[in-house]
Design a protein around this nucleic acid. Structure first.
Length: 482
DNA sequence: TGAAATGTTGGGGCG
DNA sequence: ACGCCCCAACATTTC
C-alpha cells in the first residue's frame, strides 16, 4: 500500500455521500488530500455571481468540517484551477488526482489541460460521474445525435439503464503525512461586506450537505405526494417547491440519490406516484440542460437557433433597471424580482413570468436577464440558466413558440389567486382587494385611497401597456427570417 | 409549462 | 308554439 496521497479535487460536488471520487480515494487505503480551488479567472465570462459566492462560502465551511471529522482537512487554494491542481499534486507527491465529471465547457477545458500536465509528471487522473444522472452524450436519438426535444429525452432517460446506486460516505479518511499550507476561507472574501446585502440569504438558507439531506427528507415526507397539485402554487415561504436547487447546483445532494430514493418511495407508496413523477421530471429538465450545454458550449451566450442572432432587441437601460429592481408596475413581476433580490431564489413558475416580461414585453436581450439571474440566484447554474432563458425566448431547444407571451395579470390571478405572494413581496399593495391586486392601475380612485396606494408614488404605473407590448413583440418576432 | 380571437352550441327570455 | 336574439360556455384557430 502506497503512502503517496490521492488528491481529491472538489468542484461543484461538495458532498461526502455518493462522491465516487472521494470514495475511490478512501478505498485505495492511501492518504486522501481534498482540495478546492477558487478559480476566478478561467471561466472569464461566467465567473461566480454574488449570491453563488455567498452560498459557496457556507458550503465550503460545511464540507471542510465534514472532511476534518472524517480525518482529512480540506485544502483551499486559489488561482487557475488546472495549474493549481497540478502543482499541489506534484508538491504533495500524489500518485493520482480524482474528480467528478463536470461538463460545463470551462471545466472540460480545465480537465484536458490538467490531464496533459499530470501525464508529464506520471500522475494518474481519473474522472468519475456524479453531477448528472447520465453522462452527457450517452443518450442519443436513433440517428445518433443529441436529443433536442425534452419529452423524448426524458423517455430515453427513463428507459435507459438506471444510474448507479448511490454510495455511502466514507467512514474515515487517512490524512496526508505532512499538512500543506492553504488559504483561509475568510480571506477569499466570498461574503459581501459594505454593504452586507446577504441578510435575506442568511434568513432563508443554510448551505451544506447536512441541510441538503434534511431538506430532501423533509420534502419527501411532507410535500412529494402533493407536488403535482402544488407545483404551480406561489406562496410566501415555505413554497410548494422543494427549494433544493442550490444544494443540487453545488453538488451537496446527488441526483442519483434523489432518483433512487424517489423511485423506492413511489414503489412503497403508490400515492406518491404522480407527485414523484412530476418532481423527477424537473430533475429531468436539469439533466436536459446539462446535456444540451455539453453538446452546445456556446449556449450561455448565443441562441441555439441562429436565426435569432439578428433580432432587433431594445437596449433600454432604464427599463432593464426597473425590471431588476421590481419596479415594472406589474405586481407579479415585481414580487418575483424583489424575492430574487432578497432571498436569491424564486420558483420556476415566476422565473418564466419575469423572463417572459423582460424578453417579450421589453424586448431586452435574454442574455441580460440571464446575467442578472447569474449574479442574484444562489442556484445559478450555467446550463439551467441558459436553458431556461433560451426556452422562454423561443430560441432554445424544445422552446416556447415566440407567440407564447405570458400575460402577467392572468398569470398572477391564476397562480397567486389569493394574492399571498404579491402581498408578501410588494407590501405597498397589501391592502388592495384581491380582484385588483394584480392590476392596480384599473382600481377606482376610492379603492386606491382605501388601500393607501398612490400610483406613481407608492407603486409605479405599468412600465408598458400589455396589449401594446404584446402586439409589438408579435410583430418583431414575426419578422424574423424563417 | 399561453393568450386572444374566432367559431359553435345550447339554454332561456321574449315577442 | 315558434323563431329570434343574446350570451355564456366550451372548442378551435390564430397569433
Amino acid at each position: 500500500m502506497s503512502d503517496r496521497p490521492i488528491l481529491v479535487w472538489f468542484r461543484q460536488d461538495l458532498r461526502t455521500r455518493d462522491q465516487a471520487a472521494l470514495s475511490a480515494a478512501a478505498a485505495s487505503g492511501q492518504p486522501v488530500l481534498p482540495l478546492y480551488v477558487l478559480d476566478e479567472d478561467s471561466p472569464a465570462e461566467w465567473r461566480l455571481g454574488g449570491a453563488a459566492r455567498w452560498w459557496l462560502h457556507g458550503s465550503l465551511l460545511a464540507l471542510a468540517e465534514d472532511l476534518a471529522s472524517l480525518g482529512s482537512p480540506l485544502l483551499l487554494r486559489r488561482g487557475d484551477a488546472a495549474d493549481v491542481v497540478a502543482s499541489v499534486a506534484r508538491d504533495a507527491g500524489a500518485s493520482a488526482v480524482v474528480a467528478t465529471r463536470h461538463s460545463e465547457p470551462h471545466w472540460c477545458a480545465a480537465d484536458a489541460r490538467l490531464r496533459t500536465m499530470l501525464a508529464a509528471d506520471n500522475i494518474r487522473f481519473q474522472i468519475f460521474p456524479g453531477t448528472t444522472l447520465f453522462e452527457p452524450g450517452a443518450l442519443r436519438s436513433r440517428a445518433g445525435g443529441p436529443l433536442k426535444v425534452f419529452t423524448p429525452f426524458w423517455r430515453a432517460c427513463l428507459g435507459a439503464e438506471p444510474p448507479t446506486r448511490p454510495l455511502r460516505a466514507p467512514a474515515t479518511l487517512r490524512p496526508p503525512p505532512r499538512p500543506m499550507a492553504g488559504d483561509s476561507l475568510d480571506a477569499w472574501g466570498l461574503l459581501p461586506t459594505s454593504p452586507d446585502w446577504a441578510g435575506g440569504l442568511r434568513a432563508a438558507w443554510r448551505p451544506g450537505e447536512a441541510t441538503a439531506q434534511a431538506s430532501f427528507a423533509d420534502f419527501l415526507e411532507r410535500r412529494l405526494g402533493r407536488y403535482h397539485e402544488d407545483r404551480n402554487k406561489l406562496g410566501p415561504a415555505p413554497a410548494a417547491t422543494s427549494q433544493l436547487s442550490p444544494h443540487l447546483h453545488f453538488g451537496e445532494l446527488s441526483p442519483r440519490e434523489i432518483w433512487h430514493t424517489v423511485f423506492a418511495r413511489m414503489q412503497a407508496d403508490p400515492g406518491l406516484m404522480s407527485g414523484g413523477e412530476s418532481w423527477l421530471r424537473e430533475l429531468g429538465w436539469r439533466e436536459f440542460c446539462a446535456h444540451t450545454l455539453a453538446a452546445n458550449p456556446q449556449m450561455p451566450n448565443e441562441p441555439l437557433h441562429p436565426r435569432f442572432a439578428k433580432f432587433p432587441w431594445s437596449h433600454d437601460v432604464s427599463k432593464l433597471r426597473a425590471w431588476q429592481r421590481g419596479r415594472t408596475g406589474y405586481p407579479i413581476v415585481d414580487a418575483g424580482m424583489r424575492q430574487l433580490w432578497e432571498m436569491g431564489w424564486i420558483p420556476n413558475r415566476v422565473r418564466m413570468i419575469v423572463a417572459s416580461f423582460l424578453i417579450k414585453h421589453l424586448l431586452i436581450p435574454w442574455q441580460q436577464g440571464e446575467a442578472w439571474f447569474w449574479d442574484t440566484l444562489v442556484d445559478a447554474d450555467l446550463g439551467n440558466n441558459a436553458g431556461g432563458w433560451q426556452w422562454v425566448a423561443g430560441c432554445g431547444l424544445d422552446a416556447a413558440p415566440y407567440f407564447r407571451i405570458f400575460n402577467p395579470v392572468l398569470q398572477g390571478e391564476k397562480f397567486d389567486s389569493a394574492g399571498d405572494y404579491v402581498r408578501r413581496w410588494v407590501p405597498e399593495l397589501a391592502r388592495l382587494p384581491s380582484r385588483l391586486l394584480q392590476r392596480p392601475w384599473t382600481a377606482a380612485p376610492l379603492d386606491l385611497v382605501e388601500a393607501g396606494v398612490r400610483l406613481g408614488l407608492d407603486y409605479p404605473w405599468p412600465l408598458i401597456d400589455h396589449g401594446a407590448a404584446r402586439a409589438r413583440a408579435l410583430q418583431a418576432f414575426d419578422r424574423l427570417p424563417a
